[in-house]
Amino acid sequence: MSAQNAQQWFETSLGKYLLAHEQSYFDQAVANIFGYNAIQIGLPQFNFLRSNRMPLQFSAGTDCGASLRAAADFMPIESGSMDLVIMPHVLEFNENPHQILREVHRILIPEGHVVISGFNPLSLWGANRYFKPARSDFPWCGNFIALSRLKDWLKLLDFEMTGGRLCCYTPPFKREKWRAYFNFMEAAGDRWWPISGGVYFLQATKHMHGMHIIKPGWKNALAGKKRIASAAQRFNDNSIEKKLHINGYNQINSDKQ
């Protein structure tokens, strides 16, 4: 995906329509996620972390404007250091989305959060890709990933789905007046065709499975027992020698009797 191509598309009427929905959802989704470190992977020209209150926020990617210039599938970030990761349209424009999800799982702390947005192939937006004369343009050049498949990938990494929704039910017309004619689809989309939104959002939490070893109370059981000295004791005290002499004398007298 070319950053310039994506930037130009978001400046169109259809791009602004999508951007308004994306910004609204991310603002709501990340506002009440707390922690210390948050990262946005992809689309650094848009601040989708603006409503979050974590002290450290930065963007990462290969596009100009990213705070950290790095590939999404191999992040130079310490494992278990991020509280929140958001990925606006990253997976469908990368050749190895599985590796990106593994990297997200690696850098997240236990119970850390990830918020993902993606284009839905089972929608009018997905069908529109096959009727475009220029399929090399953004966003039709992407490999749209079905929501059900993305959920399966996340479950394999022990993520738990905690939220999500779909939007952009109207056909992806370039002209605003044509989208206005079909605006009723946007209002009724969640009720009548809930899986046919052009864009989906998905929230998930990283879980770590482990065990706590319960040890028996060996220390308490051995506390009252005498232990063998770890080193030989030196008897230099005269009082000890006297006691040994007296005990021996008493033993001899008892034998005579």
Rank of each mutant, 00 (worst) to 15 (best):
M1I: 05
M1S: 12
A6C: 09
Q7Y: 13
W9I: 03
S13L: 09
S13W: 02
L14P: 00
L19V: 04
A20W: 05
H21P: 06
E22S: 06
Y25L: 08
Y25N: 03
D27P: 01
D27M: 02
Q28T: 11
N32L: 05
N32T: 06
G35V: 01
Y36A: 15
Q40F: 05
I41A: 11
G42A: 02
P44E: 07
F46R: 05
F48M: 09
R50H: 14
R50S: 15
M54P: 07
P55S: 11
L56P: 08
Q57D: 10
S59D: 07
D63H: 10
A66D: 02
A66H: 09
R69T: 15
A72P: 01
D73T: 01
M75T: 01
E78Y: 01
G80W: 05
D83F: 00
L84F: 05
V85Y: 00
M87L: 15
P88F: 01
V90A: 04
L91V: 08
L91R: 07
F93P: 01
N94F: 06
P97G: 02
Q99E: 12
E103T: 00
V104G: 00
V104C: 12
H105L: 02
P110W: 08
G112N: 02
V114C: 06
S117M: 05
G118N: 01
G118E: 01
N120P: 09
L124R: 07
L124A: 08
W125N: 00
Y130A: 08
K132H: 02
P133W: 05
S136N: 12
C141K: 04
S148D: 07
R149C: 10
L150I: 02
W153V: 09
L157M: 07
E160C: 06
G163V: 02
G164H: 05
C167R: 07
P172V: 04
E176M: 09
K177T: 13
K177H: 14
K177F: 14
W178S: 11
W178E: 09
E186V: 08
A188S: 15
G189A: 03
G189Q: 04
R191Q: 14
W192H: 15
P194A: 00
I195L: 15
G197Q: 06
G197V: 03
L202F: 03
Q203K: 03
T205H: 00
T205L: 00
K206Y: 01
H212Y: 13
I213E: 11
P216N: 10
W218I: 14
A223L: 13
A223N: 13
G224L: 10
K225V: 15
K225L: 15
A229S: 14
A229F: 11
S230V: 12
A231W: 06
A232W: 09
A232Y: 10
A232T: 12
Q233Y: 02
R234F: 08
I240C: 06
K242I: 13
L244Y: 08
L244C: 08
H245T: 08
H245D: 11
I246D: 07
I246T: 07
Q251P: 05
N253Q: 13
S254V: 02
